[in-house]
């Protein structure tokens, strides 16, 4: 097995075992989405209009908040030292960890989207559009959030500080994700334009994220 696939397999295994937090993200997503109607009222017409925005906000918070400990636990038990010393470039190892996190915590969010779409009175097209944009956009969230997770190790602070650092970085993804879903549901814009930009954002973050995270981790070696 190659070093990277070994790392991905290990991280997914840990996330799914007892004590792992992969499914808590989905539960958080569900809870946030269920809270929204209590704030805006049970008006189905209004909810279905707000639906894509609510789902995107919920998915954004769920995928960023679960990132908190992406590097922290490896730092605490000394694994990060060995990963840094190994032949595998730290950038690639970071990318592998982020990918594992997306597979274990990001994909379940997308799988849960249709159920939540039902609660928000979204029809098939709208649910499909939101799920598709989430599929294209959540990698961007994970790979940008990873930078915050790396900073959390360097600064010895996690949680809210990290969220404050990373949430502004995720604004473009939110804009184009919701715009693309709205375009598919009501128009008048074409779905293609914002969706392409969303994909581009994901691809860019796929490159920037690992480098920034690795640089931050190397700099913070202690």
């Amino acid at each position: 097995m190659t070093p990277l696939s070994a790392l991905i397999r290990r991280d997914i295994k840990i996330a799914l075992r007892v004590g792992g937090g992969a499914l808590i993200g989905v539960l958080f997503f569900l809870t946030v989405v269920v809270l929204m109607p209590f704030a805006v009222g049970p008006d189905l017409a209004l909810l279905s209009r707000l639906g894509p925005a609510i789902l995107w906000l919920g998915a954004l918070l769920a995928s960023l908040l679960t990132l908190d400990r992406l590097f922290m636990s490896d730092h605490e038990d000394g694994s990060l030292d060995l990963i840094t010393m190994s032949r595998t470039p730290l950038e690639l190892a970071c990318a592998a960890k982020a990918l594992a996190h997306w597979l274990a915590a990001g994909l379940p969010l997308i799988v849960a989207t249709p159920v939540l779409g039902l609660l928000l009175n979204l029809d098939m097209v709208a649910t499909g559009a939101v799920a598709l944009t989430l599929l294209a956009g959540t990698p961007a969230l994970t790979f940008t959030g990873m930078i915050g997770a790396a900073l959390a190790v360097t600064l010895h602070r996690g949680g809210l500080l990290m969220a404050v650092l990373v949430l502004p970085l995720s604004i473009p993804v939110l804009i184009f994700g919701v715009a693309a879903s709205q375009a598919a549901i009501v128009g008048p814009m074409t779905f293609g334009a914002p969706f392409s930009i969303l994909c581009a954002l994901s691809l860019v973050s796929l490159v920037i994220g690992p480098f920034a995270a690795a640089a931050s981790l190397k700099h913070g070696l202690d």
Binding site: V18, G19, G21, L23, I24, L27, L30, T31
Partner: peptide, 11 residues
Amino acid sequence: LGLMALWRAVE
């Protein structure tokens, strides 16, 4: 679900 998550989270 939250309660089940709590049972699962602590080993």
